[in-house]
Design a protein around this nucleic acid. Structure first.
Lengths: 143, 143
DNA sequence: CTCTGTTTTATAATCATTCTCATCCAGTAA
DNA sequence: TTACTGGATGAGAATGATTATAAAACAGAG
């Protein structure tokens, strides 16, 4: 996807971000990729248009875009491994901001409505669900 | 939680694992912690009982336990950041083994059944859900 | 008790991500 | 247009989590 510089400037200004060339290319690349890409993949793609861009710039801008809601983070979890001794079927409630994880019980998935969307061959016999939201503490924080 | 060496030996043997002292203490520590702990936290706790244990041993054993279903991984995602240009509300179907992420549409959360389990103050106004399972390719793999 | 293959340990290596800081550029005001 | 200023960028170092390596120790079988 390509935007005019004007279009991108408006998008960026809504978030209080300067509209730099690098930023525009990073943003366009992510949106055009139609997938769930890693910073490294974005970096590789962006370099075709901005050969001297730094990987740190890609990281910086991805973080900014996510923080300002222009992009979504696919893995809003604590960045390190977490392990759970409870292997009985249960689900998780995860705070998108502070990454705290709480267990929740309950059958709240409507399989009748879910299954039509699940591709053939995908095995949901023991689905584990993680529901994201904002915990009380993070919700009441000003920032 | 403590097990007799006999009990742990049976548990380990079911998975084809040798029942070492370190293994037993790591396992007991995770189960006793009743939470979602990082390897570093487990390591710190385990050292109270096995002062000379190596961090690598904790990692190795956590990985083995997860692979054999004795523990559950709380973050079964790709280990690196993934970014999504699609910020329209949608959910994800994630393969627990290969970590592939697919978008799914649909309102399949039964909020009537979910809300009683959500603690006061947790904000679900725009919940994002990730449903885990096994994709076709991984399901048909022998291993 | 001895043997064999696995596990552990200490340490080095790797990988993703962030930091540092000198340089550069976007946006503003003249 | 030009000059100014604070934020953005680039190169590379630093950090932190995790994995690999190889020698020593141990579990389980005979």
């Amino acid at each position: 996807m390509r935007l005019s510089h004007q279009q991108f400037r408006e998008l960026a200004w809504k978030c209080g971000l300067a509209a730099t060339h690098q930023r525009q290319v990073v943003y366009e690349t992510v949106v055009a990729s139609h997938g769930h890409r890693s910073p490294e993949q974005i970096y590789t793609a962006v370099r075709k248009r901005v050969p001297h861009i730094s990987l740190a710039t890609v990281y910086n801008n991805l973080r900014l875009f996510v923080e300002h809601g222009l992009l979504r983070e696919v893995t809003p979890h604590a960045s390190t491994l977490r392990v759970d001794g409870n292997i009985k079927p249960h689900h998780h409630l995860v705070c998108s901001r502070c990454k705290e994880v709480q267990d929740i019980e309950g059958d709240f998935i409507d399989f009748k409505r879910l299954s039509p969307h699940v591709p053939k061959g995908f095995d949901l016999t023991q689905p584990v669900v993680e529901v994201f939201g904002l915990c009380r503490r993070c919700r009441t924080k000003t920032s």
